Simulated assay, not measured.
Amino acid sequence: MLNMPRYGRISRFAVIGGASTLIYGACALLLSRGGAGAAILPATLASAVAYAVAGLFSYAGHKYFTFVSAGAHAFELPRFLLLNATGLATAIALPVLLTEKLGMPVAVPVVLTCIAVPLVNYIVLGRWVFRNV
C-alpha cells in the first residue's frame, strides 16, 4: 500500500525543487542578459547570484512546505547550506571527472547529477537538515 504522507512529501519536494529551478533559470537569464539586452552581471556571477536566490527560496519552501519543520534556523540553515554546497560540488565534479578526464559525453554527468542530487537532497533534508527532534 502507498504511504500517503510520504507520497505527499515527495510531491511537495518536487514542486519546491521545480520552482527553485525556474527561479534559478529566470534570475540567471535576467541578470546575465538584462531587460534591454545589456548584461547586468557577467554570466558566471549572474549564475552564482541566481543560485543563491533560488537557494533561499528552496530553504524556505522545504522548511515550511515540504518538511514542515519548526526547527531553529540556527540549526537548520547551516546544514542546508552544507548540503547545497555538496550538490553544487557534485554538479561541478561529475563533468570534470566524467567528461574532461574520462571523455564521456556531457549528457552522462548531467543526467547523473539530475538523478543523484535530488535523491540525496530528499533523504538528507528529511533525516538531517529538517528532522524533527
Rank of each mutant, 00 (worst) to 15 (best):
A19L: 15
M4E: 04
I16W: 00
A50C: 09
G55H: 05
L22C: 15
I10H: 03
A43M: 02
I40H: 04
S47K: 10
M104V: 00
V106M: 11
R79Q: 01
I16M: 10
T44A: 10
N3E: 12
I123V: 14
G71K: 04
G87D: 00
V129R: 09
T44Q: 12
H73D: 14
I23H: 06
R12L: 04
A36D: 14
G71I: 09
Y51I: 06
L30C: 12
R9P: 06
A46I: 00
M104Q: 12
V111L: 15
T66F: 10
L41M: 08
L94E: 05
G61F: 14
V68A: 15
N121P: 09
F130E: 09
L83S: 12
G35I: 10
H73K: 09
L125Q: 12
R6P: 03
R9Q: 13
Y7I: 13
I40E: 02
N3M: 07
I40W: 00
N121G: 04
Y24P: 02
F13D: 02
Y24C: 01
L81M: 13
Y24M: 07
L125K: 01
V111T: 14
V117G: 03
T21R: 07
V110C: 03
V117H: 08
F57C: 13
I16K: 03
L97N: 12
A28G: 08
T99Y: 10
A39S: 15
A26T: 15
A72H: 14
P118E: 01
C27Q: 02
V117K: 07
G35T: 12
A85N: 07
P105L: 13
P118N: 04
A107S: 14
G103K: 01
E100A: 02
F130R: 07
E100D: 15
G87A: 03
A52K: 03
L29A: 05
F80Y: 13
A93P: 05
L97E: 12
L88P: 00
S11P: 00
Y64H: 14
G25Q: 13
A74N: 01
S69C: 09
V106S: 15
N121V: 01
G126C: 05
A93R: 02
V133C: 11
L94P: 13
A93K: 07
R127M: 08
I40Y: 03
S32F: 02
H62C: 04
P109A: 08
